[in-house]
Each structure stands twice: as C-alpha cells, then as structure tokens.
C-alpha cells in the first residue's frame, strides 16, 4: 500500500519527493517520508483526496536520530470498512533552527500536538497560532527529549537537579553519555 501511496503523492504534489520505506517483516511498520517544505500540501492532499482520504490526525511524534530529527504524523482513517494507519515523516537536518510548516488549519488536533513537539524537541512550526510550551514551564531551558539535552540545574532559584539525586551514576547516564557525545559530534560537522 505504501508504495502506491507514495507514487500517488508524487504524481499529485509536485516536489513532495515521497519515498516509501517498506518494512521487511511484520515486526515493524512501514512509513512514507516526504520533503519537509511540502508537508502542508501533502497532508492537504491526503485529507481531501477521495481515494485515500485520511480523515483524522492521531498524533505527532518527534524522534531525535542525532544526525537528523524526524517529525512523524500518524494519520488515520475512521472508516469501519477499511481501517488504515499511515506514518508520514519529514526529516529535519538543521539542529539549531529546525522548522516545519504547521498543519493546524487542516487538523485542529495538530494544535496541541505541535506544541508538544516544540516543547520537547524545539522544532518550530511556522504559522502556528499559539506556539508555547505545553508540558514544561514557559521559561524552561532546553528541549528535554533531544539526545544532547542536559537538565537545567537551577530553576527560579530552586535547585531542581541536585548532584546527590538517586541512582544518577548507575543508571540514568549510561545510555545518554555516549548519545550526547555522538549528537555533539554530528552537530560539529
């Protein structure tokens, strides 16, 4: 299904450069990656086209792969006859000022979801009506779900991240230290 859908997108949205990733087995899901600058048009096409018609946006999820960041749009079709899910992705290579067009005008669900991605990954959504942090406080520093995030030590004069925090050496940083290093290396290049 993904290959035909990618072809359909390429035919109808010029410059979208949709590429289908087909999973090798049932253990993983297939997805479609499109050009970041064309996301609004692609989603508009997928929503309005009669053949494919994805009528609802479930969730927007961000993933930090260190070399690049991804925004995944989980589109779905609430049609009892043909239940369809689609993972639609855009890749963002700029870590300093990542930005992508907002799709709030197409799906109201995108409002809070994009705010969350902005909150956690610092990805800006152009033309978003109300781009504020949603889960962290408004004046929080850094974007927590990036792999090179180092927690804020002091917030409003309070020590929020004491050195003697439980289990810090044994657990929390085993995975993260090497990820931070890798992320910083890829940033420097």
């Amino acid at each position: 299904m993904h290959k035909e859908l990618a072809d359909l997108i390429n035919r109808n949205v010029s410059g979208a450069q949709a590429v289908a990733y087909i999973a090798a087995d049932t253990k993983s899901d297939s997805s479609i990656t499109v050009e970041a600058s064309h996301i609004y048009k692609v989603v508009e096409f997928l929503k309005t086209n009669k053949e494919v018609s994805f009528n609802s946006l479930h969730v927007i999820s961000g993933v930090d792969y260190m070399e690049h960041m991804e925004v995944c749009y989980m589109l779905t079709n609430y049609d009892p006859q043909a239940v369809r899910d689609l993972i639609l992705k855009v890749k963002l290579t700029d870590r300093v000022n990542p930005a992508v067009d907002s799709i709030v005008k197409l799906f109201a669900a995108a409002n809070f979801q994009e705010r969350e991605v902005y909150d956690m990954f610092g990805i800006k959504f152009n033309n978003h009506p109300d781009l504020r942090r949603v889960l962290c406080p408004d004046d929080w520093e850094g974007y927590p779900l990036r792999k090179d995030y180092v927690a804020q030590k002091v917030y409003l004069g309070m020590n929020v991240y004491p050195d003697n925090k439980m289990n810090m050496e044994d657990r929390e940083f085993i995975v993260r230290q090497d990820m931070i290093k890798k992320a910083q290396e890829s940033k420097a290049q």
């Binding site: 993983s28 899901d29 997805s31 479930h58 969730v59 995944c72 989980m74 899910d85």
Partner: peptide, 20 residues
C-alpha cells in the same frame, strides 16, 4: 529488539491509547 518502529493502538476505557 530489531531496529525499526511500530505504532500500536488499543481501545482503553478513555479512548484509543497508542505507543510509537
């Protein structure tokens, strides 16, 4: 786990929960 990603949905009392 093998490299890859899944999006799994299920019907919970309050609505559809999903994990990516």
């Amino acid at each position: 786990l093998p490299a890859g990603e899944v999006y799994v949905r299920a019907e919970c009392p309050r609505g559809e929960l999903a994990f990516h």
